[in-house]
């Protein structure tokens, strides 16, 4: 199993397509810097909401590093992971390299798990790259740390803003958010594997998995459609955002949502394994 995982990781990381993720990290940083610079010069309603003292605090390393994780964990990385999963499974099937692995004495379930681990590893690298790059860039731009001001809108959380004082706990919070966002990505990968195994077509797999994820995500953001929310994985997958609340609701929200996300992920992988086992290659 270790040899299989090493092979899958090596294959995943050796593909030029994987540089796409690093490109995305650079791009989001550029857009975020520009957004921060514009906001700094034209604060608008933020200035009235935060007041002059907090507004000065707003442009620091902590705020930047914490804020940038939100668009990446909600949209950018899930879409990226769906595409990479499509390459890793359906792409390999189409090219024919999957067969080379399958004629070896390893079970299909192990191959699927090894590919999932490789994608999870890739996701960890992307999350890590985002953390390091945002830390470095914001340090260069702002030149200082400060209190962590969490704007509710940024994380789709139901409050205007929260201030967490600069300190070890605040950094712990940020690192926890990044870690949890990586865990949520592994659930998205499970869903993408299901569509990849079911379609065995690179383009179709990428389109279906991103469309399903984004559709569920959009519906989850519409309060009018709250009746369907409990049945959508995207209701639970962004559990990482709870780490940005003033008091983390471990038992009330975070753990239950993590559990439901794990249930969805296991169901997706279980179905993917059933499809994989039953098909001829």
């Amino acid at each position: 199993m270790i040899a299989l995982i090493r092979f899958e990781i090596r294959k995943t990381l050796s593909q030029n397509k994987c540089l796409l993720g690093l490109g995305c990290v650079i791009l989001i940083n550029v857009v975020f810097i520009l957004g921060f610079i514009i906001k700094k010069s034209e604060p608008g309603h933020i200035s009235r909401m935060l007041g002059e003292k907090l507004l000065k605090e707003l442009f620091n390393v902590c705020v930047y590093v914490a804020s940038i994780v939100s668009p990446c964990a909600y949209i950018l990385f899930p879409v990226l992971i769906c595409i990479i999963v499509s390459y890793v499974f359906a792409g390999e099937y189409e090219i024919g390299t999957l067969r080379l692995t399958m004629v070896r004495p390893v079970s299909r379930l192990k191959i699927l798990i090894a590919k999932w681990v490789a994608v999870a590893f890739y996701g960890a690298i992307m999350v890590g790259a985002l953390f390091v790059s945002s830390l470095a860039i914001s340090w260069l731009m702002a030149g200082r740390t400060g209190d962590l001001i969490i704007i509710g809108d940024v994380f789709a959380l139901p409050f205007k803003f929260v201030v967490l004082p600069d300190g070890i706990d605040t950094y712990g919070r940020i690192i926890l958010t990044y870690f949890l966002s990586w865990l949520s990505l592994t659930a998205v990968a499970s869903m993408a594997f299901l569509f990849s195994v079911a379609t065995r077509n690179l383009a179709l797999s990428a389109i279906i998995s991103t469309t399903v994820y984004l559709s569920c995500h959009v519906v989850t953001q519409i309060p009018f459609l709250s009746g369907i929310h409990p049945f959508l994985p995207t209701r639970y997958i962004p559990f990482w955002r709870y780490a940005m609340l003033e008091k983390i609701p471990w038992e009330k929200s975070l753990f239950p949502d993590m559990l439901w996300t794990a249930v969805f992920a296991l169901a997706f992988m279980g179905l993917a394994a059933v499809f994989y086992e039953r098909r001829d290659f």
Partner: peptide, 28 residues
């Protein structure tokens, strides 16, 4: 202890020949 070629053998093109053989044979 079975080795096989089924249809055209397609390898990960971004790996070297040595790496391909190393990783594939390590599965057995």
């Amino acid at each position: 202890r079975v080795g096989a070629i089924v249809e055209a053998p397609m390898f990960p093109v971004y790996l070297t020949a040595r790496d391909c053989l190393y990783y594939l044979s390590a599965l057995s």
